[in-house]
Design a protein around this nucleic acid. Structure first.
Lengths: 109, 109
DNA sequence: GCATAACATGCCTTGGAAGATATATATTCA
DNA sequence: TGAATATATATCTTCCAAGGCATGTTATGC
């Protein structure tokens, strides 16, 4: 079972996940939103399912896929460790542009 | 220039990024924390630098690498679209376990 | 200038992943 | 039961990325 970032690294897989943001979709729905063959889509869905990023519900001969949030959370938490780095750079830009929100008094010029 | 998730998909690259959480490190510092050769580490650092995930500062013959936050932010924002999915599943677990915080009155049982 | 240290780059090899095509499986309908 | 629909799986090919080794480059110290 590969890790979450590995799964997210493929643009076509991200595209599928984006298409699932508004709720469950059938395989054909998803195929129509890509330029790939149906087997290719099914293959990627399989990988996403195996790593629990999507859930599968069967309705007749339709297979409805939907997002499962937990793995995304892991990735998000990992990225959380770097939040201070981008906040820092935003603060620097604010200083340069003089557009910072004066939350606390800063050292005088 | 490959995208951020692509860069994050490699475990050794993530390992390097984790080693940089506490500040800038020289190449040798980083090599000692991995089981890879120095050229392999330099290669990955190059990729991370090209995609602006790390910055390079030269001090004599030492090359000090450090985190640049912006690209991480992009990835974090993309993942933010899935936050409601993992919150939802947490809420479900709360319901099952009866440990939910009663923020608003829920439908009667 | 020469030796060494600290990195970077070039080249080569290899494993794996992604997609296409063909085929198998399951479900509905006549 | 047989045909059509909806999806999964199997197999094959191709491509790329990761790592190793050898070598180039830049900086320091003598």
């Amino acid at each position: 079972m590969p890790d979450v970032f590995q799964l997210l690294s493929d643009p076509t897989r991200r595209h599928l996940l984006e298409a699932l943001r508004n709720g469950e979709r059938s395989v054909n729905d998803l195929v129509e939103r890509t330029r790939m063959s149906q087997p290719a889509v099914s293959k990627q869905l399989r990988l996403l399912k195996d790593s629990r990023m999507v859930a599968l519900r069967r309705d007749g001969r339709k297979h409805l896929y939907s997002i499962r949030g937990e793995p995304f959370r892991e990735a998000s938490e990992w990225l959380g460790f770097y939040e201070r780095f981008w906040r820092r750079s935003l603060a620097r830009m604010d200083e340069i542009l003089g557009t910072d929100t004066p939350r606390r008094k800063r050292g005088k010029a």
